Simulated assay, not measured.
Amino acid sequence: MSTTTREWHLAARPHGEPTPADFRLVETELADPADGQVLVRTTAMSVDPYMRGRMNAGRSYAAAWELGEPMQGGAVGEVLQSRSDRVPVGSRVLHGLGWREHAVVDASQVVVLPELEGIPLTYHLGVLGMPGLTAWAGLFRLAEFHEGDAVFVSGAAGAVGSLVGQFARLRGASAVVGSAGTPEKVRWLTEELGFTAAFDYHDGPVRTSLAAAAPDGIDVFFDNVGGEHLEAAIGALRLHGRAALCGAISGYNTTEAPPGPRNMMLVVGQQLSLRGFIVGSHTDLRPEFQEAVAGWLRSGELVARETVVEGLDHAVTAFLDMLRGANTGKMVVRVGG
């Protein structure tokens, strides 16, 4: 017996900023799961900056979405049918076939989620999921954070950046500085998340705002934005400073390659370490990350905020809004259940 469902397809590859016309909502029929598969009803799905790259053809660290085919991404949901002893009916699971109401998934490709009292299921898409692990790996492994370091986070009010700053604070940073795109986000960083200082990057040159917020310089930079932020951070890093380069959202919709930082000789003179990374190469850190973060959530020491959009129909709007910085914390689309 088949299941009638809806799913978002990529209709066109954008040139520059994506538009709603690049997507199409399609009704389809799903066959029952075969041996070793499960049928999952989506509870919520994630929209993330890296998905912009999946709209493009060509080589990238994440496979391109195919035209006329369903898109993919992180999702959580409930198992309705199972042909696997490992994943029983009723399980709450995490999988990679988001952007749809239902999915037939190989049981080997789902993670059965534990029941964590007081912790919403959607947190497995954010603070306990890929964004959280990204923050953890970038700060502690790539940037080699040490107690007493002064840290600067670009895009600090987003899903990853808001956690980087808090992880640094909880592990004894001497200062945590963040950039954000609105006065409201700046206040959230300083008044609720415990950042030492924050600034709105629209208020003037980033280098000027960073110098005012961290007059003695920084030891660690976690970059989600690139461009002007990266150049400013290179200028502010102290001797032997370290940077974890996670993303460059400022250039995701450009039609020509943006110019690189103009002060790269400081990397040599200051003996800096700039390391790009992909979170999928650091999944061995997941157990220690989840144990620490779950404890901080239960104790109330860590703040996790979600921007929730209701309904699969509005998933594209949520995605486009996220690329424009409309979210505070993790952007999640609640699909059903």
Rank of each mutant, 00 (worst) to 15 (best):
V268Q: 02
P258C: 09
T283G: 05
C246T: 04
L274F: 05
R238M: 08
I249S: 01
G276S: 08
N253A: 10
L239F: 14
T254H: 12
V268I: 13
G247A: 13
G276I: 02
Q270W: 04
R262K: 14
G251Y: 04
A248W: 06
S250T: 05
M265Q: 11
S273F: 00
P259N: 10
L274Y: 01
G260R: 10
S250G: 06
T283Q: 07
A243E: 08
R262A: 15
P258Q: 08
L272A: 06
P261I: 09
S250R: 03
V279M: 07
C246R: 03
G260W: 10
V268S: 02
R238T: 11
P261G: 08
L239Q: 15
L245W: 02
T283S: 05
R262C: 10
C246L: 08
N263P: 09
T254S: 12
T254E: 15
M265P: 05
C246P: 05
G269V: 15
I249W: 00
V267D: 01
L239W: 15
L239G: 10
A244F: 07
A257M: 12
N263W: 11
L239V: 14
G276Q: 06
Q270S: 13
R242V: 05
F277Q: 04
T283P: 02
Q271I: 12
G247H: 06
V268H: 06
N263K: 09
G276P: 02
L266W: 01
T255D: 04
P261C: 09
V268E: 01
R262D: 13
L272R: 01
G241K: 01
Y252Q: 05
G280Q: 12
M264H: 10
G269A: 13
Q271S: 14
T283R: 08
P261E: 08
L274K: 00
G251Q: 10
G280D: 11
L239P: 05
L274W: 04
R238G: 11
T255K: 03
F277S: 02
L266D: 09
A244N: 04
L266E: 10
E256D: 14
S250W: 00
A257R: 15
T283M: 09
V267R: 04
A257D: 12
V279G: 07
R238S: 10
L274C: 05
L239C: 11
P259W: 07
I278V: 14
T254K: 13
V279P: 05
G269I: 14
N263Y: 12
M264E: 10
A257I: 14
Q271A: 15
G260V: 08
G241I: 06
R275D: 02
N253Y: 02
S273I: 07
G280C: 09
A244M: 06
Y252C: 00
G269S: 15
Q270G: 09
M265G: 09
Y252G: 04
G280K: 09
A248V: 00
R262G: 15
G269Q: 15
G247S: 13
R262Q: 15
T283V: 12
A248H: 07
M264L: 14
P258M: 09
L245E: 00
Y252A: 03
T283Y: 06
Q271L: 13
A243S: 14
G241F: 02
A244T: 09
A248C: 06
A248K: 01
N253T: 09
G280T: 13
T255V: 12
G260P: 00
G241S: 04
G260E: 08
M264Y: 11
H282I: 09
V267G: 07
G276Y: 01
R242N: 08
G276R: 03
T255M: 02
